[in-house]
């Protein structure tokens, strides 16, 4: 049973990583436009959206 000493922290760490990832997606505004994003993947050129992300950060 001593194995749980390692397994529990590892599982918590993995969960925490997923949580941090989710918080990042919220903070970077990825849920701001649920209508538009699904069409955006059909675009060939992702240029303007990427530039906007950088720009958004610098404005804040």
């Amino acid at each position: 049973m001593t194995i749980i000493i390692y397994l529990i922290p590892i599982s918590l760490l993995l969960g925490a990583l997923a949580l941090i990832g989710f918080v990042w997606t919220v903070r970077s505004g990825q849920y701001d436009d649920l209508e538009g994003e699904r069409y955006r993947i059909l675009e060939e050129d992702a240029g303007p959206s990427r530039m906007d992300d950088q720009e958004n950060k610098s404005v804040k």
Partner: peptide, 27 residues
């Protein structure tokens, strides 16, 4: 829908001097 916003983004971002243009189809 998002199709319209993409059209607008494509058209405007092709113009000179435009740094970024981002349309939000929800709001």
């Amino acid at each position: 829908c998002g199709g319209c916003t993409n059209k607008i983004e494509r058209r405007v971002s092709s113009m000179g001097g435009v740094i970024s243009v981002r349309a939000n189809a929800t709001t």
